[in-house]
Amino acid sequence: MTSIDSVISFIKEQYKTEAFIPLHVPHFGGNEKKYLLETIDSTFVSSVGPYVDQFEIMMQKITQTQKAVAVVNGTAAIQVALRLLGVKSGDEVLTQALTFVATANAIAYQNATPVFLDVDLDTMGLSPKAVSLFLEEFGELREDGCYNKKTGNKISACLPMHTFGFPVHLDELLAICNTWKIALIEDAAESLGSEYKGKPTGCFGKLSAFSFNGNKIVTCGGGGAIVSNDLKLGEKGKYLTTTAKIPHPYEYVHDEMGYNFRMPNLNAALACAQLEQLYSFLENKRKLAKEYESFFATSGVKFRTETPETKANYWLMCVELENKIERDLFLETTNKNNVMTRPIWQLMYRLPMYNHCYRDQQVNAEFLEERIVNIPSSVR
């Protein structure tokens, strides 16, 4: 295997610095300052303003969906998507344990229970085979949907996450979900700009959720979005996330429990400027990924690349080490030498609040947990 020192040297060469190299930092090279100043001058810095509307229109175009709803963060987007599809207290949601904690938290916020199923080795996202095997063993179709015949709980949704921007096998998952009458929601928090069979991630699920956190490919500090091709669902999402207020010139009437999940116009202004640069960001990231791929090809270290019929945004690029010992040595050495790297997330069922949840054998997830390391992936 290529020495870790040579990896460090290569990364420093790419970023042309001996100073600390973060994992992923935002790039503000467009109209960010202009739009922010316009927003401040207008005094519309809160949840009403033209940039909120513009952001939603831009997201509709990028994701090829009928409706986008700007919200405060990606976790809120998932939570509201689950509610819109009728996920209730006591229901079960099929998802992956190899994910950021927000995926599981959003399910728990609905008082539902995550069911942790294995991922595929190639995508690092929810495995159609694992979902199918679980449903064949535990699923029971009834007139009003799918139920877990062991627990008696309704299985209301399937929530795959496109890990690091690598799309899951969507066609297979959708076919399984359609057979079992389970709604599919894409956790597309990490996959803005990624494509599956020529179409953008986020347009396949009944609803999908995006994140614009500070370390995402496009950021507005915080921020999230719900997108859907079901206009009625999308409009209901807008209503719920703006406190379920009935429109009126001055009266305050709310006819159900809503959420104050509105994205401020100030954040939306930043988001719009960032979205204008999305495709240049993607191009630069793909160039960096090619350089990494070429370097690691002769190193004995596997650099993770997109799967056939997909186009990844390469949000966070990653390598697969030989084993946990090699992984830990790589992490320790790179971080000591001013190159930030990090392991993939700890599997959700290892966390105290989710260790009671059902999980299958997790063969692939545990394999990846011991080997995957993220390396610097910023737009240069």
Rank of each mutant, 00 (worst) to 15 (best):
Q361C: 09
R327Q: 14
A104C: 09
L266D: 08
A104D: 11
A271F: 10
R327T: 05
K287R: 15
T63G: 00
L85M: 15
V93C: 10
G222A: 09
A157Y: 00
M58N: 08
E190D: 15
S132W: 04
V115T: 14
M257G: 12
I176F: 01
T298D: 15
E143N: 12
A244S: 05
P160E: 01
G214Q: 10
R350V: 04
T305Q: 07
E92T: 05
F210N: 01
L135I: 11
A77F: 11
G86H: 11
A81N: 13
S299Q: 06
N338W: 06
N260T: 08
T99F: 12
H27C: 12
N260F: 08
K149Y: 02
A209G: 02
F261D: 00
A312S: 15
W180H: 14
R304G: 02
G29H: 15
S127W: 00
D53T: 14
A19S: 15
F212T: 00
Y252C: 10
T241H: 11
I185G: 06
H162Y: 00
Q64K: 05
E370T: 01
D328C: 06
K324L: 07
T103C: 10
Q54K: 15
P128V: 01
K154M: 05
G222V: 06
P308V: 05
G90I: 03
V253H: 09
V379K: 03
V218L: 06
K154S: 06
P376D: 12
L133M: 12
K16I: 07
D122N: 14
E366P: 09
R371F: 14
Q346R: 12
Y196A: 05
P264Q: 10
L321H: 06
Y109F: 15
P247A: 13
I62R: 05
E322M: 04
E172G: 02
N229T: 02
A273G: 08
I182D: 09
P376R: 07
E172C: 05
C203Q: 15
M348V: 13
A209K: 11
F10V: 07
S299N: 03
G49K: 04
T39Q: 02
A81I: 08
S127G: 03
M348Y: 08
S194C: 02
C357S: 02
K199H: 04
S89P: 03
I11M: 11
V319W: 07
E18N: 11
S280P: 04
K150A: 05
G198D: 03
V363N: 14
V115P: 12
Y250S: 14
E256W: 04
A112H: 13
K181L: 06
P343M: 04
R262D: 09
R286H: 14
K245F: 08
S194V: 01
A175N: 14
V69W: 08
L233D: 01
L266V: 07
K67R: 13
L135Q: 03
A365G: 11
T113W: 09
D53I: 11
N260Q: 13
Q346F: 04
T151A: 01
K290D: 00
C177Q: 09
G198W: 00
D255S: 01
K336D: 07
S46D: 14
A68M: 04
W345H: 12
R142Q: 12
E56G: 02
P343Q: 13
Y358C: 12
R350N: 09
H254T: 09
T298M: 10
E140T: 06
S211E: 08
I4H: 05
T113A: 11
F116R: 11
N284D: 05
T163C: 13
M353S: 11
G205E: 00
S132M: 09
L240I: 07
T242R: 00
F44K: 15
V301L: 10
